[in-house]
Design a binder for these strands. Structure first.
Lengths: 344, 344
DNA sequence: CTGTTAGCGCATTCAT
DNA sequence: ATGAATGCGCTAACAG
């Protein structure tokens, strides 16, 4: 089933077939010929060989996606799904390559993808990361969920600081005067190491607290449920009057651990303590009891934006790299409320 | 940078270059020529254009992966990561296409991938699914985490029944005489609808219970944390003597909800109640407090096997479809223990 | 042992 | 308005 077959069936040349099927027939193909070609193509169920077309056009309509274990992160899927969907909408396809945690292999992966003639490359990391240096690429590159030293390639990243600020504002508006942030500090044994969300969130949270004159401390490290459980136990270990009335978890898993700790302590959430998370993790934040008030990480938006930027770059868009910082909206659910009477 | 450039630099023909670089030089290329080609290629940093090679060889060394929202499922990532890694080890690449929950589009996605000339296709679903009919494909197709009516294409699926049986055996061995399974029934509003794990697990669990003469009931529906929380509250609402001593959650999220419910009830896990999950969900099962004893879903093994089977089929392996059923091993952690004294 | 040559399927320039 | 001819970069018969 080749263009030549269609041409033969329609009694025209392959040129005519190519022109008609690619919409290049303005003023050069008669309506009659056009109709015959369309009919023949339809009947034969013809679809151009994408490989041959790619070779000829020097463009594969595919973009390479190299991931730093995004494929195995709890919310990396959101980015992936949005990226594939956006790509598909433009008749593009994503070529995946996961380097696990071996970040040294980014170059290799990019090179392999380049030789497959992808039109552009997206490098997406699991956690928000500050790259020591931008990966090398001969073709358009966009960074998703990470940034490189300026001037670096285009990037899309989440406004972690804005999200943390919003979290504190929410708590302050509710009347909390004494809050503690849980978890997230640098942890050498953790694959999240390059992750800079912890310090960014704490910093923004602390500053916002100062502005609103609320007392803020930081307790515990880590990113997992058990880390959150331990941190909350420590933070909540105080007589009612001195106990924090709200907990800001560095991520939803930490918040889930805090929820468990509160339950064990016989504390009601949000009656006795408010808990607010970060990430809006799928199948977690919206389903805890009570459902978690949290700050949403814009993974879907990042996936979509990354593909869009890559496509723009391919079609010769602006030369100057673009640095998109996407908002992290507050999602209010049931785990936050005003502090109990007389607390503080 | 083409083969011709390398040939020119080495002072040989492109044939020599092609033969040397593809290892077809046995007894047809002199050592001297071979060395010159290698040196020139090295110096020029030559890498063959994969597209041109694909066109010529009618094989793209890439396999299409269409997913039913696996990309956004909590553990779909494990399958993805293993699949990409296995593919990479054979110099293959994965072309991703996610159809979200619009299962009607499988055909479309497969067709699109076929026109991209992928060598084989893998269709992977989020939950273990029984397909009403096998997707159509002109090229080798393997089903991952789902099966079609026989005779269908090759497939890899988890031994859910075996896992559920192992869970009961574990509980019975510990001495539990009264257990209840939590969650998982068919739920029309749930995207997991085609998922047959619920009934399969309950069925196997119930039968195993009969064999061991332990009393088993089923309580609650759903697959999320809050569903588990509600189900556990119901199951545990009985005086100590009549209360079940162990809970088997249809999945780890349900188990997490049960853990939370137990904490609220002031019940110790595993001291007062044992809880066992299913899935061994990343960042969840191993990090609850206590860590969850659970049955592991072999997602990584399925991803690897699917790619391997697809590759075998491409290289003209056995014609007859193969149906791999992978074991779901019990992972004993801290949430199960013998029942409390005098319980029943 | 080595080089010449002919496609793979398509898009496109250049005659007609 | 249409078609013949050319080439994208590579591999592999085939001839030398």
């Amino acid at each position: 089933m080749r263009a030549a077959d269609v041409a033969a069936a329609a009694g025209v040349s392959t040129t005519a077939v190519s022109f008609v099927l690619n919409g290049r027939d303005a003023g050069s193909i008669s309506a009659a010929t056009r109709a015959r070609v369309l009919k023949a193509a339809e009947e034969l169920g013809y679809r151009p060989n994408h490989i041959a077309r790619s070779l000829r056009q020097r463009s594969t309509s595919s973009i390479g996606l190299v991931t730093d274990a995004v494929a195995s992160s709890p919310f990396g899927g959101r980015l992936l799904a949005a990226a594939t969907e956006t790509a598909e909408a433009s008749d593009q396809v994503l070529l995946m390559m996961d380097i696990g945690h071996r970040t040294g292999r980014v170059g290799e992966a990019i090179a392999a993808l380049e030789h497959r003639q992808v039109d552009a490359i997206i490098y997406a990391t699991m956690g928000f990361t500050e790259l020591a240096e931008a990966p090398e690429s001969r073709i358009p590159l966009v960074l998703a969920n990470c940034v490189a030293p300026t001037p670096g390639p285009s990037s899309v990243s989440p406004d972690d600081a804005g999200g943390a600020t919003a979290a504190l504002e929410h708590l302050a508006d509710l009347g909390h005067q004494h809050v503690v942030m849980l978890g997230g500090h640098y942890d050498p044994g953790n694959p999240n190491s390059g992750n800079i969300s912890g310090p960014i969130r704490w910093d923004a949270f602390r500053r916002a607290a100062e502005r609103r004159s609320v007392e803020a401390r930081h307790v515990g490290t880590g990113w997992q449920i058990d880390d959150g459980h331990a941190a909350a136990l420590t933070a909540l270990d105080a007589p009612p009057g001195e106990r924090p009335t709200a907990l800001f978890a560095v991520c939803d898993r930490i918040a889930a651990g805090a929820l468990l700790a509160a339950a064990k302590l016989g504390l009601d959430v949000p009656g006795d303590v408010s808990i607010i998370g970060f990430d809006d993790q799928e199948a977690l934040a919206g389903h805890t009891v009570p459902a978690l008030t949290t700050v949403a990480l814009p993974h879907a938006a990042m996936g979509e934006a990354a593909v869009r930027m890559a496509l723009d770059a391919v079609s010769g868009g602006s030369e100057t790299p673009e640095h998109l910082v996407l908002p992290c909206p507050l999602v209010v659910r049931g785990s936050t409320a005003p502090p109990p009477m007389g607390a503080g």
